[in-house]
Write a protein that binds this DNA or RNA. Structure first.
Length: 483
DNA sequence: ATGTAC
């Protein structure tokens, strides 16, 4: 149902327009089907789409993906691109968990080989990868200087110390290192929080999930990605931990002052921002790049301990497990990218918050191995259902600044989910569905119940039907480590 | 998401 609260106009079955009015500089465009649009209107996220459209220098549209929900200032599931001269950069448009993202690993193993071994696999992963709020590694505490090396070099830092191979780096967005990182702009407090958290999972929706390829929608492209039916896969979902949180928090304070200093009118203080070319804007981007690089290194370190855990739990060597990254995507980031605006190539600052880059075949930033098929897009669902691997398309490049959805998207707040889970054993319910779960805290499992999320299949069907991604395979979970 | 309110 459309709601006159937002004057929503239907464009087609999968796109809706919130027409520009008042102080809006551009239209809002929402990717959803009619049923989802109803869910989306249960929170304030469409008002946030409108608020984002007020910001100076916004280009074309304020975009919302089908997994949109309420977030800090900007909606989660939002995409907004800004002109380099007139536009702004905003920490709220990236999110607290800078470079929260997803890495997919393929293996040389098949589903039948893990029968009766899943318990050992999940227990070993749980023991080797610290999870939960404030989790840290007892076996790896870095010096401040070493953390600064991580912030400058990202996943490359991990590989240089033997945590993975150079080949791994070819299969990561930006090759695992965002340019322009300046560790001198990261506070001592943020670095302090990063000393012992590299190689840890964190809490909430973060997880390591072992699963298998349950459906193949496009055999040829799946083969290029190294995926085939019943092959074992591992999905890693985590970000920049306390360090990234602290960078965001530090710069929100800076940006509140900057917005006043540059006379930027804000419909919501949480949209605080600075011109991209201002000192504050440049400094945030340089600190954000540091946190993004920490997250890339984090997923690389976790990959190392996943490899080690599989070898130990299954008594096999690397030549049998053959664990290698398919790809690694950021879904909370601001980036400089070239896009076509009014027929001309233009450099923009693209904010993706709970949204994934989805570049087409032959784009210079699509990795060489995937040039013919498009950039892999990794979409985790909730713990009880499934995940998807998609690839980016020309239509995404043309219509959404090369962006698509990032996951299932919450429909229940954490508190609501906790109340719904009261009196139930979520671990037991998942076990009955054949999914083993180990979690640092029972409370997290309650917050993450499958019903708290939209059905990821419906989300993915919207982006596929709208043409901004192409579905390649579905993954189903076998065992999960949660925060 | 977050040493879930320095």
């Amino acid at each position: 149902m459309t709601d006159d609260k937002y004057k929503i106009q239907k464009i087609d079955d999968y796109r809706w327009r919130i027409p520009r009015e008042g102080k809006m500089r551009v239209d809002g465009i929402v990717y959803a089907d009619a049923h989802m649009l109803e869910d989306i209107q249960k929170d304030e996220s469409l008002q946030q789409v409108i608020n984002v459209s007020f910001l100076p220098g916004i280009i074309k549209h304020s975009l919302a993906m089908p997994d949109i929900h309420w977030g800090y200032g900007f909606p989660i599931g939002g995409v907004a691109a800004f002109d380099m001269d007139e536009g702004v950069v905003s920490p709220g448009g990236v999110g607290y968990d800078i470079n929260c993202g997803v890495r997919l690993l393929r293996t040389g193993l098949y589903r039948v080989e893990l029968v009766n071994k899943l318990e050992s696999v999940v227990n070993t992963l749980f023991a080797n990868i610290p999870s939960g709020v404030g989790s840290h590694r007892k076996d790896l505490k870095l010096s401040q200087q070493e953390v600064k090396n991580v912030l400058k070099n990202g996943a490359r830092w991990a590989v240089s110390l033997g945590y993975g191979t150079k080949e791994d780096l070819e299969h990561i967005e930006e090759k695992g290192c965002i340019a322009g990182a300046n560790p001198e702009l990261v506070s001592g407090r943020a670095i302090e929080r990063g000393l012992a958290q590299l190689g840890t999972l964190g809490s909430g929706n973060h997880f390591v999930e072992v699963g298998y390829v349950s459906e193949v929608y496009h055999v040829e492209i799946a083969r290029v990605l190294g995926l085939e039916k019943d092959g074992i896969t591992i999905v890693v979902h985590t970000g920049s931990r306390g360090l990234g949180y602290q960078v965001c928090d530090d710069f929100l304070r800076v940006m509140i002052n900057a917005a006043r200093k540059y006379s930027i009118e804000l419909p919501d203080r949480q949209l605080c921002c600075a011109p991209i070319n201002s000192q504050e804007g440049r400094e945030y981007l340089a600190a954000m790049a540091c946190a993004a690089n920490y997250a890339f290194a984090n997923r690389q370190m976790i990959t190392h301990w996943v490899r080690e855990s599989f070898e130990r739990a299954l008594h096999i060597g690397p030549k049998e497990s053959k664990i290698s990254p398919v790809y690694d995507v950021c879904h909370n980031i601001a980036k400089f990218e070239d896009h076509i605006v009014e027929g001309e190539k233009k450099r923009l600052c693209v904010h993706r918050k709970g949204a994934t880059r989805a570049f087409p075949p032959n784009h210079p930033d699509t990795p060489d191995a995937y040039k013919a098929v498009g950039q892999p897009v990794l979409i985790p669902g909730d713990m009880g259902r499934c995940s998807y691997v998609l690839v980016g398309t020309e239509k995404a490049y043309a219509d959404t600044f090369g962006s698509t959805c990032h996951g299932a998207g919450r429909v229940m707040s954490r508190g609501q989910a906790t109340r719904t889970a009261k009196g139930r054993s979520i671990a037991q319910e998942l076990k009955e569905k054949g999914i083993l779960v180990r979690a640092d805290s029972r409370a997290t499992l309650d917050e993450e119940i499958p019903e708290a999320y939209k059905n990821v299949t419906e989300v993915v069907d919207v982006v596929e039907h709208a043409g901004i991604s192409k579905k390649i395979v579905q993954l189903k979970p076998l065992c999960v480590v949660k925060g």
